[in-house]
Design a protein around this nucleic acid. Structure first.
Lengths: 231, 231
DNA sequence: GGATTTGATCAAAAAATGATCAAGATGACC
DNA sequence: GGTCATCTTGATCATTTTTTGATCAAATCC
């Protein structure tokens, strides 16, 4: 990516294609265009694409399906172009692995900001993480060594329990939704199985909290997910 | 926009045109006039317009239609000039993407305040990429982490309360109609259930305002909706 | 100025979501 | 093939959130 970043645009509306064709090259991006999902998948394979821009309303296969297909083979940043009011589809796109979305109509400035942010994230993502140990009150967690202690004593966690704890830790302080947890710990195909998360959160609390019924660390956000509270 | 902001006025009443022609240039705005909707659309394409002022009662195509057409290609700030009693039309204009409205007759001071507010919002909106945190007086909101604090203390919001707050926040400073809120937070099929919005705005105010009876942030726009006031 | 609409607030009822327990299923390992 | 820890699943009860209706206040309309 020393040269211009290559953007694959998947869009059937001519108006938007003309708009980007006119503006992106000036901003130092190379543009590849695809008018349909199938064309996009084949062009993706044939080029070194750095970022994908995909419209959700495509003629042949669904834009959502394109995202799923791309995610099967690549971690390329994907930004969704959505029309106003497509809230549900937009969320589904993010669940399938899109990185960001932008609502039409948009200005070139906005788009450029998103492109920069996504490329920056992608660049960073390849670097190894730095911090491996965390402390929460009397609990300490070593992510790399998979070691958890409470009041100095080793606590044994099962793989799923440990997975949940690390997902929460990686976003400590922020809410992590049920589906994010399911995706990261169980895999994409488990999304919707909220009950699993509950059962294991109860187990985690039983092992880590002094009083599981009044948790100090693992907080539930009803209707949304869980949050690891920083003390 | 380093030079004067360019305002496109779409208005058939000579009186108002004369009034603005006389006052806006003194206030450091450049004025382009259009007497009909079609004329406006063509002048918009031919100029670098920074803001649109549109009257709803036009001779040829409807002012509402002009708004829809403009929104298809641009996010330029649009302020509606509405006559007293055109409540329904005014709301429809906001639903179609207008940013604000001002009721005739108005003073030049009122109009200038709206112009400044709209242009300020537009300037901010161009780089919303990774701004997930906002500050309103002693309240801070992290949209990504779903974290709300007031005077440093965590405030717990339910999913609907949080949804309402983010809808307001995303359009901070501009009116959001009841139906826009219902659509975004509850879904299309809830449009018309204004009572829901009221109940939850009361709850939000109870949680966020020092004195819910005299709100500083969550302002009511009677007959229209709500507006998050920037301090 | 009285009637009607619109908005705020409260609280009860209904619905959705979450916690917990425990029985069975699974699968790795000896 | 049996044992063990772990995971899946179902049932039940608790909690939180949402919906709904009632009531009062304020603004707006004849």
């Amino acid at each position: 990516m020393n040269t211009k970043p290559v953007v694959l645009l998947i869009e059937d509306e001519q108006q938007i294609r003309r708009f980007l064709r006119a503006s992106l090259p000036d901003e130092n991006y190379a543009l590849i265009e695809a008018g349909s999902g199938l064309e996009a998948l084949s062009k993706f394979d044939g080029n070194e694409v750095d970022l994908v821009l995909v419209d959700l309303g495509l003629p042949d296969i669904d834009g959502l399906e394109v995202i799923s297909q791309l995610r099967k083979k690549s971690r390329v940043p994907i930004i969704v172009l959505s029309a106003r009011g497509q809230e549900q589809t937009k969320i589904e796109a993010l669940d399938r692995g899109a990185d960001d979305y932008i609502t039409k109509p948009f200005t070139i400035g906005e788009l450029l900001a998103r492109l920069r942010a996504a490329l920056r994230r992608a660049g960073r993502a390849s670097e190894p993480a730095e911090v491996h140990t965390f402390t929460l009150g009397d609990i300490s967690v070593d992510l790399e060594g998979r070691l958890v202690r409470k009041k100095g004593e080793d606590v044994h966690l099962t793989p799923i329990e440990f997975g949940l704890l690390s997902s929460l830790l990686k976003r400590a302080g922020k809410v992590v939704t049920h589906n994010q947890l399911l995706k990261e710990v169980w895999g994409d195909e488990y999304m919707g199985e909220t009950h699993y998360v509950r059962v294991y959160m109860a187990q985690l609390r039983a092992k880590l909290e002094d009083n599981p019924a009044r948790p100090r660390f693992i907080m539930t956000e009803p209707g949304v997910g869980y949050r690891l509270k920083l003390q």
